[in-house]
Design a binder for these strands. Structure first.
Lengths: 203, 203, 203, 203
DNA sequence: AGATAACCGAGACGGTACGTCTCGTCTTGAT
DNA sequence: ATCAAGACGAGACGTACCGTCTCGGTTATCT
């Protein structure tokens, strides 16, 4: 999130509760107002905190929203359902459930858009949000290979490329379905998606 | 885009060149500044036009950017390459080439983010950008069925659902690869993607 | 006060009434709050005007207050009372009456204090406030010399030096009496002052 | 200056050096920044002292500056030159020398301006600065009366009124010359001033 | 020799005002 | 009726100070 110089021992310490209040207020403001109408002054008021306190901790709106949204992804877990298809369906449904929340919808796409010309922001998003999801892809494939559902990778570079491809396909499809097509990624859709992903269109 | 009252015959007509200049200035401003720092006053100055002229034609930043970005998709065409795989690769590469341009990156995601709480905007995006792409999916499948590469759909509702799914998978994967992973959707990636899409992971 | 480029003919002209409203609001705010608590935002609100309008016309608090206070000195006139002593008493009483007003007290000394390290501000004060008063000294001396109450000056440089000295003595005494000693410069005091000024202490 | 509860005997005593450092830092900040840009945080930093320490001793900027400036007037003394004219010239030159220092210019007028709507502050200024000067007027007149240069006062009330008048004339003229006219109160000017004060304009 | 109490530095805190920027609207005179 | 120009009311921006508070730590005097 943000870090202070570890050497600074003196002075009044930062309020621990303020951080949580600010992030919660940010999420609520995203729900109520959306990204573009969200105001740092308003967030500060909602959190019962002075604007200066907010700026002391975050550099700007982008960084704040990334942290606020990232917390939503803390709950993501890989279920062990016994089969690859069920694993995928389970994790995609979790991901879809998070994306269905309005604070995620409003915030996530906006910061991704901002990140197109802000490398530091993109790195922050990757660390806070993306890598946490990609880990699930890696674990899921590992299990599937142990079960014999997927062949082992010939070399590690190919393994990495394939994992990235799968991740882009899974995350991209859910995001596009939810945000662009504006249709729910419900159980039926997830089943269809998983079938195509595993077996392809050509059958 | 925008329409005038058909009854208005008198008075000075609107400058025809202004529209093109404004949209071009908008795209250039997207490249230079990104979505959040783009201002309508700046676009007007770049286009050599008064702010009033701009507001007379568009309701706001969102609508203007949608129109400016939509023009980029005019060039999308479905190549007839003789095989489904080649057709998909061709169209995905076209789509990736458009998304690689910074004005598309910055603008498109941002308006999609705004559209999460603005239904009219989402409809405008669908009409200007999305449906033009989805048409290619439908045509490509039609051709593939004529060639016998894909089975005919049992009923029209299922056909529609499958087309939506494919579209979300194709567009989502390219968008995610380009914007979130920030890696180029080059020929090698497109080939890998097409293989998984047609044959699935399980082989 | 402030001037615009004379070449600018186009665009909406500045509101003429806004200037007067702002200066009046400034004086009232000086009365209510004093210099240091006077806020440009508050002045704008009192004047029913946006803060930007205020900043478009004045560079800051100092310049605004100089203009607001300068208007108070518009009413200063040299009475023709028939004798030098009566002329002095008349004009000093007028000056004292202006200085007795709280908006003059609060504002004038403060901008003079600021002017100690702002040459442009000092010049503005001189032009708006001081020179208008000094003119009265020159006219009064001229009349007294015509009446034979004062001897003619030997040369113009000496004349200028003496006028400056008299001005500093008159204005300084009234200001010090009013602001530092915080006692009213009433008729009795003015008579005593005039007697010392004309005849000296040594009689 | 400031006083502590006389009952407090225990605990760490206040640093004696801190007071002097703070007042010196205040004067330097007045020179560097002027009144309006002087901040207590900056003074504390210059003095090598925590803001808390500063607030423990002074109520605010006004009180601090009055004390800092008052120290400048400690050196004022009445020379015994043998004649009233020489006494006046000597003391006026001393006063002018103090007022010529930028820390006095910036600070003194500003606190006087603030005192127009703060009675306690005016009283503090009177006690720290004004009365110390007025004493010189009283002593000077006393000596001149002993020498026979000035007639004795008929009654004590008249004596007080005349002393106040002279004080306002002397201090006011020097202040106005220095701050408003922004010209040096040098020896030549002081001689002219003293001549007018003692003999009047009418000769 | 502790205990006690006021002091000290550092710096975070809730506020307020700053001066700037952009918004979307509204006059202008000219085309 | 539209145009370029630009002033307008509104309101958010990010910064700077305000005066207060909470820390850990430092002297003093008073048991």
């Amino acid at each position: 999130m943000q870090s202070r110089s570890p050497a600074s021992r003196t002075g009044r310490p930062r309020s621990a509760t303020a951080d949580a209040a600010i992030l919660a207020a940010t999420r609520q403001a995203l729900v109520d107002l959306g990204w573009s109408k969200l105001t740092l002054g308003d967030v500060a008021t909602r959190a019962g905190v002075a604007k200066t306190t907010l700026y002391r901790r975050w550099a700007g709106k982008n960084e704040l929203v990334v942290d606020a949204v990232a917390e939503l992804f803390d709950e993501l877990e890989l279920p062990d359902s016994g089969s690859l298809a069920a694993d995928i369906e389970g994790v995609v449904l979790q991901f879809a459930a998070i994306l269905a929340r309005p604070e995620a919808k409003s915030g996530l796409m906006a910061v991704v858009a901002e990140a197109t010309h802000d490398d530091a922001l993109r790195e922050r998003i990757r660390a806070s949000v993306v890598d946490r999801q990609k880990r699930l892809v890696l674990e899921g494939r590992c299990r599937a290979q142990e079960r014999g559902e997927l062949p082992p990778e010939p070399d590690s570079e190919s393994a990495s490329r394939t994992a990235d491809l799968i991740f882009d396909m899974v995350a991209g499809a859910v995001v596009h379905r939810t945000l662009v097509s504006a249709e729910p990624a419900d159980e039926e859709w997830v089943r269809s998606f998983t079938r195509v992903l595993l077996q392809g269109l050509g059958t």
